[in-house]
């Protein structure tokens, strides 16, 4: 069964006669454990779709089914609860808290889970180890390279073992080596059963996924 099913989803930005439709009657399916690439031209609505999936933004019409159950997100808090249970985000610009250490940035993901404090610590250290940034744990993001920041962001995304990771151009700000490293990690997670949706306009990255969902403008 599809893990996520979007039916006749529409989304426009702005109001009244200034409204710009971005997604119109879009149908979208995502199966559990799948690795999916969303591609399309710039401005075609890739980020918009990803934000709708992650309940960061809300559709104007259409149905959102998660595990066959209809979801109605109305407020920021609905989205927060939903993400805390099922979804992690990775964005192009990392979205790290500059005044938190690498350790704290990763720990952040576990604060709302029922994990016990000493287990949290263990889990965070494990993930940092796995992403080879354990020695950076007491550093602050401004002291890191782009690749290290992205690995911190990935660590934060995976530490609570979500069902799905949503990645919006995760390699957009990285060089070739760091890009490969990031993709390797994502593929590894996929192999472990985590569902992954990557927004990208790089055909090479799309080719590494199980399936490609192409958005055409309008």
């Amino acid at each position: 069964m599809a893990l996520i099913q979007l039916e006749k989803l529409s989304k426009s930005y702005g109001r009244g006669n200034k409204a710009v439709p971005v997604l119109i009657n879009l149908d979208f399916t995502f199966n559990a454990g799948e690795m999916l690439a969303i591609t399309g031209k710039s401005g075609s609505g890739k980020t918009t779709l990803l934000n709708l999936i992650g309940a960061v933004d809300f559709a104007d019409s259409g149905r959102y089914l998660f595990n066959g159950e209809e979801k109605r997100f109305r407020s920021v808090s609905d989205g927060v609860r939903f993400r805390a249970k099922h979804i992690s985000f990775i964005v192009q610009h990392f979205a790290l808290i500059d005044d938190f250490t690498v350790y704290e940035n990763v720990l952040m993901s576990l604060w709302e889970t029922p994990t016990k404090p000493h287990e949290r610590k263990k889990k965070v250290l494990e993930v940092l180890e796995r992403l080879e940034i354990l020695d950076l744990k007491d550093k602050y993001p401004p002291q890191l390279s782009g690749g290290e920041k992205q690995r911190t962001a990935i660590a934060r995304a995976i530490v609570r073992k979500p069902a799905i990771i949503l990645a919006d151009e995760p390699t957009g700000a990285l060089d070739a080596a760091a890009e490969k490293n990031t993709m390797d990690i994502l593929k590894e997670l996929h192999a472990e059963g985590t569902g992954i949706i990557i927004v990208t306009h790089d055909p090479e990255i799309a080719a590494q996924c199980d399936r490609v969902f192409e958005l055409s403008k309008g």
């Binding site: 808090s77 979205a95 808290i97 709302e112 934060r156």
Partner: peptide, 14 residues
């Protein structure tokens, strides 16, 4: 921006 990062990471507004 930081508050949004918290919200993205699942920390409630409350």
């Amino acid at each position: 921006p930081n508050i949004c990062i918290f919200l993205m990471s699942g920390i409630p507004l409350g």
